[in-house]
Design a protein around this nucleic acid. Structure first.
Lengths: 249, 249
DNA sequence: CAAATTTGTCTATTGATATAGACAACTATA
DNA sequence: TATAGTTGTCTATATCAATAGACAAATTTG
């Protein structure tokens, strides 16, 4: 489990194809740091032997990762690691998108994809301390770093208190800056619930993933320093590009 | 994305079979609370239509979940939810296994599977502030709640400072109690890094999972109140049975 | 230049996955 | 008790996933 391309552990008739499992393992090995950027992977025959599968199966895995931009294959030379390790996204009392990835990327920003006013569902109402069905503003956003999507989030705000936050978000491109216009100078992460699942069609499109990928899902509530809930959110992160670092605990 | 068995989003030629994707969706719907315990699932033909697949494909998914103990099918009547929602495992400054699941389960305990002394790997040494290659004690444990495995962890301790902690763990069945014997009355979670991946063969065996399942992985360091590292750990949780609740941030 | 190594392409075969349709077996209900 | 609704089983077919082997094309090494 620790290092080296975990030799063991490929599952047959699992509902997950062998090439997908091998692709996952290679991704994981890269993320752990077993293969540096531009390092050569073991040759296809070696990988096939290590996993106990046919060379063509390994080629399917590699071909998926080449498609995905993770690897680069050169005939006669070998197969090389193209992309970097997973980004580490910090989650703590003061979780902020932009500052979180500083130092790991040269550029990052949030795009507002859509906004709407809707009645609060059960869980949104609970999270915000509103009555079910009360008007809430929903902001659909995507976080990008160095041109690649790293998160996809839906945020809900009390429509009465934060009327116009959609316009502010469109203008500033920052949740923090938008909230500042409503007198919120500081806010804290009250709770975060974390789960993981296979990416569905929406995730694939939103996060530019290949089918079969895994997404991390966080459901969180942000509050003012005196405990008043201001934002309920659900975010999805591509597990192959992002790990979550729980800090400042 | 919010409620009801998400109508959309089944991916073909993804490396993940359709029946596995549908099984995942049903699991997710149950976890979210769309189907209470003993509630009936929609009939097979309805599910097939909703996902745009053949009835037999839905049957494959259901059959996997029946095998797994999540569903119960009764000829002529319908298919019913057998198991409860996901357990919510809290992670915070004072993360403790036993207290964490209190109230959600009637019984929980930790089993010590194996222990050994080994030289510290790079990451273990970094986590514990030791020199690479220094002797560390490794404890392999499994957490169980109501008879079902909910976590599988490896913990590393400085062998000089905690000589005999394996015996203490075997005797007490508690990390907290074992550390107390070494004068550690309190300890804090310094950092937690979180990721997700497909279960490998080891995970399947350790956590009693079906092939294709997803595991959440945490890598954490525990420290004394004055910041001295005492434990480095890697834990795996079955995503279908556990969600992580990040609290006390 | 020759040999060894590595990725790329092609053909063929087998087993798992998915679709299609028909009907049996069981349950609830009008 | 008849009927409708549901799960269970069977056969047949098509497509995807995986194996197997052979050889071409490109690169590196002796």
């Amino acid at each position: 489990m620790v290092g080296r391309l975990a030799a063991d552990s490929i599952e047959r008739r699992s509902g997950v194809s062998l090439w997908r499992q091998i692709a996952d393992k290679i991704l994981q090995a890269i993320a752990i740091g077993d293969f540096a950027e531009n390092a050569a992977l073991p040759p296809e025959v070696a990988l096939a032997e290590r996993y106990g599968v046919n060379r063509h199966t390994v080629r399917s895995a590699i071909s998926a990762l080449v498609q995905e931009g993770v690897l680069r294959a050169e005939q006669g030379r070998g197969t090389f690691v193209r992309s970097r390790k997973r980004l580490s996204y910090p989650i703590g009392a003061r979780t902020r998108f932009s500052t979180g990835l500083q130092g790991q990327t040269s550029e990052r920003h949030i795009v507002l994809l859509a906004s709407s006013v809707e009645p609060a569902s059960q869980r949104v109402a609970e999270g915000l301390g509103l009555a079910k069905g009360a008007d809430v503003i929903r902001l659909e956003t995507r976080g990008e770093a160095d041109g690649r999507p790293v998160s996809r989030a839906a945020g809900w705000f009390d429509a009465r208190r934060f009327a116009g936050i959609d316009a502010a978000m469109a203008e500033t491109g920052s949740i923090t800056a938008s909230l500042a216009r409503f007198g919120i100078d500081d806010y804290l992460r009250q709770s975060t619930v974390l789960s993981a699942r296979h990416a569905d069609a929406a995730d694939l499109a939103d996060l530019d993933l290949q089918p079969g990928a895994i997404v991390l899902v966080t459901v969180a509530v942000n509050v003012t320093p005196d405990g008043q809930p201001i934002q309920f959110s659900e975010s999805r992160f591509p597990a192959e590009r992002i790990e979550l670092k729980l800090s400042a605990l």
